[in-house]
Amino acid sequence: MKRISEPWEIKRSLVVKAEEETNPRFGHKPEERPIQEHMRFGIINLDKPAGPSSHEVTAWVKRILSLDRAGHGGTLEA
């Protein structure tokens, strides 16, 4: 049976509608965000151990990194 095209393989191309300069006074490039902000809006690719639930592990990550808020991207088989 032939493989169905996988959505994560879709290649996109950017088209320009108008040009404008961005003002460096506002915001930051994502990779240049001050570390406090970076941690607040950060995402990690965590190798979760089998056993503890995603919910539990999220709470641990929140504590390890002393964050105010933390969440996860979804569970398996729940």
Binding site: P30, M39, G42, L46, I64, L65
Partner: peptide
């Protein structure tokens, strides 16, 4: 990263104030 890695990276950042390693594993949203 594993939870152990995270714990280590965070303590290194606290100690050395060097955020470089942390930024390697914590990605922008």
């Amino acid at each position: 990263v594993t939870l152990h890695d995270l714990s280590y990276l965070f303590s290194q950042w606290q100690e050395t104030k060097d955020e470089g390693m942390l930024r390697k594993f914590v990605y922008p949203m």
